[in-house]
Design a protein around this nucleic acid. Structure first.
Length: 317
DNA sequence: GCAATGA
DNA sequence: TCATTGCAACGCCAA
DNA sequence: TTGGCG
């Protein structure tokens, strides 16, 4: 296992794989080559969720047992066939991000020890308007039954509002609930809507659910994180590998699976997934045909007595 | 992971 | 040539 | 304004 190197040809691009045998998940003996091989295999399913979005890289060059880092800006040594986009930061300045529209880029990123590529929830041709609304349900401790119940309650309300919601494991400790959107609303109004929905679901079971972002204020409850619904914020996409034991994955689920006590948020791994997907219908097959506008849903929500307003930043003088 | 730096 | 070092995010919100 | 948080 020396500093060997091999070359892969992916979609017409020659990619040098450095240190293929290096263990990125040392407890599980999962090498960088195995990560690369996974992303090459999963690319056809995963790429629709990456396409035309700025990407942030979560990298672990020395494996998940060592410190890793987030990387947004594209290093100058990336090859020119890796497409990029320059985006404005909210507080001024610009950053040039990777766009991952093909398997070659996904493989190249994996060779960079990018274990998880994180996506924006808006696309390059309309960065100010998200095409999905994200609810990240995160337990404080090992309370996954509460997460399942919270996700089901959230889905029930979203259905009442005639919104289509999709659920996936995070590959970590929680679940993601995603509503595909038409790109007609700003991040501020989408976030305000998500906050109002989350507030209502939290109030149904306040001893199990919270909107408190400080961990010390959660008291064991499930945190409804709606703050990913913001400009330049990112979320782990479907099929992403997580920097967790067993190389667990974020995986699309059927709502019916969320009713099962045996569901685990980290139960499918880089090594398991082929047998899960074999012959299985895609739970998210209709995702891109189900985009909603929020207008009528907002009116229905207000009829339920929930105020949906964008908090105004105080600005005197 | 990589490029720049220095021994 | 080899070993070391520096570098690689940012927005929301509550305190 | 800072710093926790994801």
């Amino acid at each position: 296992m020396g500093a060997s190197e091999l070359r892969l040809r992916v979609e017409g691009h020659e990619i040098a794989v450095t240190n293929p045998a290096k263990l990125l998940f040392s407890d599980d003996h999962i090498s960088k080559y195995e990560l690369i091989d996974y992303y090459r295999w999963v690319a056809p399913r995963m790429l629709p969720f990456l396409r035309d979005r700025p990407i942030a890289l979560e990298r672990y060059p020395n494996g998940i047992g060592q410190v890793g880092f987030f990387q947004k800006s594209v290093p100058s040594y990336f090859p020119d066939w890796v497409k990029t986009i320059e985006v404005e930061k909210k507080q001024g300045g610009v950053t040039r991000h990777v766009i991952c529209n093909n398997g070659a880029v996904l493989v190249y990123l994996a060779n960079q020890a990018c274990i998880t590529p994180h996506i924006w929830i808006s696309r390059v041709d309309k960065l100010e308007c998200p095409d999905q609304m994200v609810f990240d349900l995160d337990p404080s401790a090992d309370a996954f039954d509460w997460v399942r119940a919270a996700a089901l309650a959230l889905n029930e309300l979203l259905q009442e509002l005639t919104l289509s919601a999709y659920v996936k494991s995070t590959g970590s400790r929680g679940l993601h609930v995603i509503v595909p959107l038409k790109r007609t609303e700003s991040f501020e109004s989408v976030r305000a809507f998500a906050r109002a929905v989350a507030m209502r679901v939290v109030m149904e079971e306040p001893s199990q659910r919270t909107l408190q972002q400080r961990t010390g204020s959660r008291h064991g409850r499930v945190f409804f994180d709606i703050n990913r619904n913001a400009y330049a914020q990112t979320v782990a996409p479907p099929y992403a590998v997580r920097a967790r034991p067993n190389a667990s994955l974020s995986i699309p689920l059927f709502w019916e699976e969320v009713r099962s006590k045996t569901l685990r948020p980290d139960g499918v791994t880089l090594r398991d997934i082929r047998k899960r997907l074999d012959g299985m219908i895609d739970p998210w097959a209709d995702f891109w045909r189900r985009a909603s506008a929020l207008g009528s849903a907002r009116r229905k929500l207000e009829l339920l007595g929930v105020s949906v307003r964008v908090p105004q930043k105080a600005k005197f003088r």
